[in-house]
């Protein structure tokens, strides 16, 4: 991205940045929140040990099970026409656009670990040799806003088969260059619209949208679509996630 493009994108999304800053403020001031007051002034709603925090966490786990039961592996997210794509597409992260990771695509490799037969790291060029899928879908943010974008890349299910992953394992986890991390259930990982995304709107991903590799999973909320992916692993041990560990519902299916 040129500095000019970066500035244009930032200006277009100033409200989101302001919101983000407010959110961080709110998060820092949690002890003033109603839950914290009720549950005995924890620093952090949901990660505390108060009875209410524990109740909310167990309800969230119950909701994980309900959502996993509601999830239909064959139900496709609605798709849209190219004319409906949101332009410019919002930038969103837990930091500002000036702090996005700048990754050299030629030196980048996708590291594999866990319950995977072939752990050879993948270069971008090799990922591009696999059959690609494209989709125009609505990304719905946990905050409530949504935007329609076009993503294409390698279906994750096909990739998992290719690397000899244990498809009966429970979780697929991701670690990212921006210290972000997340994980999804295997059923959602194998959904046909879940793709390891290389391109956004027909061009290779740029710095704002998760270059060089991100996950696009239209059956889950936006924060379950990690960007700047560096490592993928398959496991039966619950991996959590950056927001999930702070209290967002883990499954967060759409």
């Amino acid at each position: 991205m040129t500095p000019h493009e970066r500035r244009a994108l930032r200006d277009a999304h100033r409200p989101q940045l302001a919101r983000l800053q407010r959110r961080m403020l709110l998060h820092g001031g949690l002890s003033l929140g109603a839950v914290a007051l009720l549950s005995g002034c924890d620093d952090d709603a949901l990660s505390g040990d108060g009875a209410l925090d524990r109740m909310l966490r167990s309800m969230s786990r119950f909701n994980d099970r309900v959502q996993s039961w509601l999830f239909d592996p064959r139900r496709l997210a609605p798709t849209y026409a190219a004319s409906q794509i949101t332009r410019p597409f919002p930038f969103n992260a837990y930091y500002g656009i000036d702090d996005v990771p700048d990754i050299d695509p030629d030196g980048w490799k996708l590291e594999l670990s866990g319950l995977v037969a072939d752990r050879t790291p993948w270069t971008l060029a090799r990922l591009r040799t696999l059959p690609q899928e494209s989709q125009i879908t609505r990304l719905i943010c946990v905050e409530g806003w949504s935007a329609i974008g076009q993503w294409s890349g390698v279906p994750l299910g096909r990739f998992l088969q290719r690397i000899g992953a244990d498809l009966t394992a429970r979780y697929v986890g991701f670690r990212c260059a921006d210290k972000y991390y997340s994980s999804i259930d295997m059923a959602s990982a194998l959904h046909p619209q879940t793709i390891l995304t290389l391109d956004f709107a027909g061009d290779p991903l740029n710095g704002a949208y998760g270059a060089p590799l991100r996950l696009r999973i239209p059956t889950k909320l936006g924060f379950k679509n990690p960007k700047y992916i560096q490592a993928l692993f398959v496991t039966n041990t619950y991996p959590g996630g950056y927001w999930e560990d702070q209290g967002y519902n883990w499954f967060s299916g759409s």
């Binding site: 959110r23 709110l26 949690l30 929140g33 109603a34 409530g144």
Partner: peptide, 30 residues
């Protein structure tokens, strides 16, 4: 609502439950 308001107004934080978006969602879905 306050995380992404539909109208150019927000609800006062003292009237909200949960302390932050994650807490509010957890309360709402419980």
């Amino acid at each position: 609502y306050n995380a992404s308001p539909l109208l150019p107004v927000r609800f006062p934080p003292w009237a909200t439950l949960g302390g932050w978006l994650g807490g509010s969602i957890a309360w709402h879905l419980a």
